[in-house]
Structure formats: structure tokens, C-alpha cells
Amino acid sequence: MQALTNRQLQLARIPDPDGDLRKWEMFAHTINGYEVAGSFEHCAALYNDNSATTLTELRCALFFASRKDRYNYCSEGETPVAREFLRRIREKVAAGELE
């Protein structure tokens, strides 16, 4: 999937957190979390500290979850975390909170 800005997000493009998440990583890579967050460390902190509040921060945290999942070779390791981030991302988009 190509990079998407927050304004390009539509609920139909965001995986349903209560559905099949086999391809959630594809959505996570619609943003380069390291670049947008400013560094690997800041992106990791958004994920590890659960401090993401804005749509952009939530997308960066989801991106980090996908990278962590890949490098830890976990097939289902980050799925519960991904579900929560996707739920929060969908809420932001539905509410029009696109910052």
C-alpha cells in the first residue's frame, strides 16, 4: 500500500480491529513512522509508553508495532496491540480529528 496522509484516510481503508487482521501491517506502512516521528527512538516511545494521542502519533505507534512484529518474527505477537491502535485510529478518522 502506498503512503497516505491523514486527510487521505477513509474508514474503508483502515482494517476493522474486530475483523481479520492478516494484512494490518500493510496499512501500518502507509506512514513512515520513524521519519514522521522524527527518530526511531521517538517512534518507539510512542509505542512503548502508550503515549500516542493524535492520529499521526497513533499511526506512528502502529507502524512501530508492525516493525517490532516483523523483527521479532511473531506471527500473532502484536495483533492485540494492533487491534487497539486500529480502533483508536478509526475513532479519530470517524470524528474528523486528522491532526
Rank of each mutant, 00 (worst) to 15 (best):
A52H: 05
R67L: 12
P17M: 08
E84F: 02
N50Y: 03
T79N: 00
Y47M: 07
L86K: 00
I89K: 05
W24R: 02
N48I: 01
D69F: 01
A12L: 02
M1H: 08
E25G: 05
F63I: 03
D16C: 07
M26S: 08
E35R: 12
F40E: 15
L4C: 05
P17R: 09
C43E: 14
K23L: 15
R88M: 07
S39G: 00
C43W: 01
S66M: 02
P17F: 13
R88F: 10
E84V: 10
A61P: 00
Q2I: 10
G77D: 08
Y71K: 04
R88K: 12
N72K: 07
E78I: 03
A44N: 04
L55W: 11
E84L: 11
N32L: 03
V36C: 08
L11F: 15
L4N: 01
R7C: 00
R83Y: 13
N50I: 11
C74R: 11
Y47H: 11
L9E: 04
I89E: 11
T5F: 13
L86W: 06
C43N: 12
D16E: 05
L4K: 05
R90I: 12
K23T: 12
R13V: 06
E84H: 04
E97Y: 03
P17S: 10
H42C: 14
R70W: 09
M26Q: 11
R7A: 04
K92P: 01
S51I: 07
I14Q: 10
E78L: 10
G38A: 09
F63V: 06
L9R: 00
A61S: 02
I31E: 06
S51W: 12
I14T: 13
K23H: 14
S51R: 11
E78A: 10
I89D: 05
T54M: 11
E91R: 15
L21F: 09
K92R: 14
E35C: 01
K68R: 11
A65G: 03
S51V: 10
M26V: 13
L86V: 08
Y73L: 14
G38T: 09
M26E: 15
D69T: 09
A95N: 06
E97L: 13
E78D: 09
T56Q: 10
T79Q: 08
A95Y: 08
M1A: 14
A82W: 01
S75F: 08
N32Y: 07
G33V: 09
S66N: 03
R90A: 03
E76W: 07
K92H: 09
V93I: 15
V36E: 14
F27E: 08
V93K: 12
G38H: 02
